[in-house]
């Protein structure tokens, strides 16, 4: 296969990754990493570098639309970034201390459980109208957005910020340790612990993952993991896909987004377990 064919194929696959990633609040690494390693036989370190590019491209590409449409909860997102960025820095220090395989198995199991919990919540009341959470009330982390699928303004209250912050800290740590799994833990933190609507959770996760990924970008660049020939089609394709995905999210029902997210989570969990057990 010559370079041009490789670039064109990877671009097309990246468009799909961008659409999926922007809908469920993940970075699209779930598509990019296996495609590069299994189909194209690229070294895992370069694949993870490309995945980092894909995360930032999804986040900024779709984020522009989500923020303007007010689906993103800006205040909650920026507040929770305190936990994800400090978690990412801690994780970068721990990489040398902890055995990677054990972590893959552990987080594979955690993701399976949170996938189950997110799925079980599909019939629950969609939003809270009162909150006793002192942090959320004091910083006014509550929000509202216009839902294109339900054709009405939805106001919601945020709760459980201490639990949400702890889960975000772990999410930041995991993304630095394993190079993946950042949005996979952020969405459950907001959906389950903080009771934010599903679409708000994925859009806000999407908003935050770019910053978490940027926190480790310096390391990846200096280690030579960002190969321009791989990253260029990934960046361009994912950005295009993210812009398409961002226009789709508004029109989809919260429940549909939830089911797509759970499916993706199960696939990631299987991928992590496989990497932990088989190596």
């Amino acid at each position: 296969m010559d370079l041009l064919t490789f670039v064109v194929l990877l671009f097309v696959i990246s468009v799909a990754a961008g659409i999926l990633g922007s809908l469920v609040g993940l970075g699209g690494g779930i598509v990019i990493v296996p495609v590069l390693t299994i189909i194209f036989g690229v070294d895992i370190r370069l694949a993870i570098g490309a995945s980092l590019i894909s995360v930032i491209a999804t986040s900024s590409g779709a984020g522009a639309t989500y923020v303007r449409e007010r689906i993103t909860n800006l205040r909650a997102g920026m507040f929770l970034e305190v936990a994800t960025t400090t978690g990412a820095v801690t994780g970068a220090y721990l990489t040398t201390l902890l055995p990677g395989r054990f972590l893959f198995v552990l987080f594979g199991l955690v993701l399976l459980y949170s996938g189950f919990a997110v799925y079980r919540k599909r019939h629950a009341a969609p939003v809270l109208t009162v909150s006793k959470d002192r942090i959320a009330n004091s910083l006014n982390l509550h929000g509202s957005y216009y839902d294109d699928a339900e054709h009405r303004e939805i106001s919601y209250k945020v709760t459980g910020t201490p639990t949400g912050l702890s889960m975000m800290y772990v999410a930041g740590m995991v993304s630095a340790l394993l190079g993946i799994g950042s949005g996979a833990l952020k969405v459950p933190a907001m959906d389950l612990a903080m009771h934010m609507p599903m679409k708000v959770s994925t859009a806000t996760s999407n908003f935050m993952i770019g910053v978490t990924a940027a926190a480790s970008a310096g390391f990846y660049f200096a280690r030579g993991q960002i190969d321009p020939y791989i990253a260029a089609p990934v960046a361009a394709g994912v950005l295009g896909g993210a812009i398409v995905g961002a226009r789709l999210l508004g029109r989809l029902r919260g429940r549909t987004v939830r089911l797509i997210f759970v499916t993706v989570l199960v696939v990631i969990a299987a991928e992590m377990l496989q990497r932990g057990v088989v190596g």
């Binding site: 930032i56 900024s60 984020g63 910053v211 940027a214 970008a217 660049f221 960002i226 321009p228 020939y229």
Partner: peptide, 20 residues
């Protein structure tokens, strides 16, 4: 060309930082 690509990637990496 690869230098121009990397410059574009650096701009992409700095976008979330600028956003903060």
């Amino acid at each position: 060309g690869q230098g121009i690509i990397e410059l574009g990637l650096v701009v992409l990496l700095l976008t979330p930082v600028l956003r903060v």
